[in-house]
Every structure is written in structure tokens, then in C-alpha cells.
Amino acid sequence: MPSIYKTLVCCVLFISTSLPVVASEKQALELLQKMSAAIKQLNYEGVFVFIHGNQMETMYIVHKNVDNEEHERLLSLVGTPREIIRSNDRLICILPDSQSVVVDKSRPKKYLPVGLQRVTSELKRYYSFSVAGQERMTGRESDIIYIKPKDPYRYGYRLWLDQQTHMLLKSDLVNEKDEAVEQIMFTQITIDDSIQPERLQPTISTKGYTWMKQDKALESTEPHISRWSVNKLPAGYMQGMHNKHNLPTSRMPVEHLMFTDGISSVSVYIEEMNDKKPMMKGFSSIGAVNAYTTIMSNHYVTVVGEVPKTAVKVIADSVSFRD
């Protein structure tokens, strides 16, 4: 019965070729989960570069986890030495160029190593995950993970994870042609629990600086009835939140709808038109972030996200207003 043998051979072939892919995917997702936790829970100190277009920024970072609370200090190393100190409840920004210190309440960030397992079946419909190999990065052995989108409505990632600690060492945001649109890379990193709390203290003397504080939370969390809706979303994007904010850069309360597929996110901002502050229509971009603005029922509708142009346009075009 040769046909049975044939079938058997086919089955064996199929299994032997598909197994490594499945294994790689499972391993990639496990590593991602560990990375997710590592970035928040580890104590580390280092310098990273951020390359976008033909620009490069260099930043110093200290990150310390004390009793499951994140503390962090960032310092720009090139140009004006801006410094940011962030803890769970407070955000301090030292701006020597304006001789000012701005203090704000930091918005609550949920501290949770995300339940990636629960979302993987969804995520796997829109991205493929794989372990693409090993490479030395920032002086450490690392695993390379590829996250490839399956349609043109999201970017992909190439991630280099430290094999020992699973800390993210390098991250490329890539377009559908596998070209890096943005890159972040640690050029030096120390992962060490003994990083002293003093390292989180600001180094810039703020003597004579103006201190600015914002006392109350800026956004309302009350649910409200909205007349705006988004009718067409690329597959996989779900509504994450719907709210109104007062933004420091806009006078009116701005309506905000957020959508995410679990990896990529897009926001829709709706703001009443104000002739004194005209806004340009159409596309704009900053690094890998794309934005698209339209005008509808006397409102500016702007879609912003670290997603391809196609995605912001499609979403913006589907916004509607109920009279």
C-alpha cells in the first residue's frame, strides 16, 4: 500500500519541518515574557544610543527596583544635559536650558509582568515570533528574537536579549522590508543589584532654578458619552481606553481613543477647532511615529502611533461623528 507510506512520509516530513518553527515560536514568546519582566525588575545602569533616520541620541540610564517599585534616572549625554528622575509617584525633570525644575505626579503604571500567554493566540494571528539566532551584543551573549507582522498595519521588531538576565540590549523597529526604521542599543550596561540608591540622585545643581509643580491630576477618569466613533480598524486592533484629557499643548479638553493589538498601539485625538491655532491636515511623522490629521464636524481628528502610515490613514478615515 504505497499510498499509505506516501502519506506517512508526508506526515513525517511535515512534522519534522514544522516542529522547529513551533518550538522557535514558543521559545520566542517565553523569552519575550522574561524580557518584559527583566526590564522592570532588574537593576541596571548603562548608556544607550537611539538612532533614527540619520540622527543619534546618547542617553545614560540608571534603573533600580525597590520593593517592586521602579526608580529611574535618565540623563542626556550630548547637548543640553537634561535629567529626568522618575519614581512610582513622582516625576522630576531638570531643564538647565530653561533653568527650571518641573515636578509632576507620574501617572500610575501597573506593575505586572504581562500575561503574555493569554494573548499569544491573538498575537500569533498578526505577528510571527521566532528565535533568529545568537549574537554577541554589548559584550554579552544574546538571543535574537524576530517579531514579524503579517500585514502592513504594524511594524516588526528585532530584539537582542541577554542570555543570562533576559534584559533587552538592542531593539530594531523594522518595516515590512526588514529595514530598521529606528534602533536602540546599549553600548554599555551593568546589571547589578548593588547599584547604590545614590545613583538615582540628580547630578545637575538646581540652585537658583525655578520650580514648577502641577498639583492636580489633569485628566478626568469619569466615563462620558461620546459622539465619536472609529468604524474601521485593521484586524486585531481593539479599543483600549476612551477618555478626555487636558493636554499642556492643547487648550480644549481633548478626546482620546486608544487602540492596540497587544504590541502596536494607535491613539485617536479629537479636538475642537480653534481658528487661532490652526492645525495642518494630512500626514506627518517623527522617526517611526506617524500621524494623520483630518477635519470633521468642526474638529481636528488626529491619529498618532508607532505604526506604518497606512494604519493611521485607514483609522483616521473611518472616524465618524453622531449628530
Binding site: 524580557m35 526590564i39 529611574e72 522618575r86 525633570c93 509632576d104 507620574s106 501597573k110 504581562v114 483600549g240
Partner: peptide
Amino acid sequence: TPSQSKPISWLKPLTGVAIAASVAAMA
């Protein structure tokens, strides 16, 4: 995809160093 679907709790952002956007706001 109707956007009226209820907010889904598992759709928390995957990861991320929570260095803040509010930081940038301050900037």
C-alpha cells in the same frame, strides 16, 4: 471591527521600561 467593543483588560501593553512619556511632556 466595530470599535464599540468593550475595553479588554488583557490588552495591556506588553512591556516597556516605563520611562515616561510624562517625562517627555515635561520636556
